[in-house]
Design a protein around this nucleic acid. Structure first.
Lengths: 184, 184
DNA sequence: ACCCGAGTTCAAGAAAAAATGAACAAATAA
DNA sequence: TTATTTGTTCATTTTTTCTTGAACTCGGGT
């Protein structure tokens, strides 16, 4: 591809020229971008994702057009490693996609902006695996009530707890699709 | 005085749950208890709560009767500080309650076992606050699109993003009550 | 072939979160 | 009152998680 050093060519890069930066926290980010990042960094926290992932998604969200790897790294001031891993993870969850498969140049990234897909991807990649994992554990639990309980009364209570736990799982699973549906 | 703080302190303290220990990984915990802990520690992780909270709730869940502070500390081998904070937080979320206000002795704790209440408490204490917090941020975002955008086309796109973000929040808020309802 | 730039991987350092323990407060008993 | 037992708070230590940077791979381009 072309002039290696800089890939900023095809994209209108919002610059800090005219408007005065209010909070020069991160060089080269507009106030709009900074606020957007803050929103998504907070969101990342809530869902247990690293800050840098929130920043990457936030920057894409605050950009009118696709950005490539270099853009992201440069503007956020992150290491290549972080950007690489962040993009990989975000793509795995379906939060970020490649723009225009063709195009010749480097890969460009855009944010997925459909809430339903975003949440869907997250549920699928993060919640379901957990449910599946603990399902195995739960199966084993049933057999352990007996040896553990001191008497029949206690035994009954504990068995009830195990049953309830299994019910929770079923309910949890059942709710996920509804959440996605309600967000559509 | 003996500092009862640490794990290796052997105690003759019988708890509501007597029982033979099959896997003495954690001294004095039955296999059933250990498995149950594992389940809730995993759950705590998913929800972004410290492991110790999961252990505390798990132990209560695996116990047929109420436990007091000392029971919990001793059997889990946690420090007093951890138990204190854990119980406080779990109570704040409504995951743990005091059993029988009367009774004379120390406070006894029981787990909340209604899924709806558990989830409800969590949503109320953890998700809502976040939504409220970012609402303020979002309000500000609208005013920053103009100064940030390079041209009218871009401006329009970014404005669309901001609008969408606000819509997400509304949808998010709207879904929460449904989740609780679906779990009832 | 070689070189150069783009991106990935992973060990190691930095940062953040959680657990500890000791000082403290509250409540009870002697 | 003083001594004891119970629980809380918070600074410090420990553990976990995140980020970095350097070595490495992959793919043109010359």
């Amino acid at each position: 591809m072309r002039s290696a050093a800089n890939a900023t060519a095809p994209h209108p890069r919002p610059s800090v020229l005219g408007g005065a930066a209010h909070r020069p926290a991160r060089a080269g980010l507009t106030a709009f971008e900074q606020e957007t990042l803050a929103v998504f960094v907070g969101l990342a926290r809530v869902v247990g994702l690293p800050k840098s992932y929130g920043e990457i998604y936030g920057l894409l969200y605050a950009s009118a057009g696709p950005l490539n790897f270099g853009d992201i790294q440069e503007r956020l001031g992150l290491s290549k490693g972080s950007v690489s891993q962040g993009l990989k993870a975000l793509r795995a969850v379906g939060a970020v996609r490649l723009a225009e498969p063709a195009g010749g140049d480097r890969d460009h990234f855009v944010p997925e902006t459909e809430l339903r897909k975003l949440v869907g991807g997250f549920l699928k990649e993060s919640i379901r695996p957990h449910l599946d994992g603990s399902d195995r554990r739960l199966a084993a639990l049933g057999g352990l009530v007996g040896p553990s309980a001191a008497g029949p009364a206690e035994r009954k209570i504990l068995q009830g707890r195990v049953d309830k736990l299994m019910r929770w799982h079923r309910q949890g699973r059942a709710v996920l699709p509804w959440i996605e549906k309600l967000l559509g």
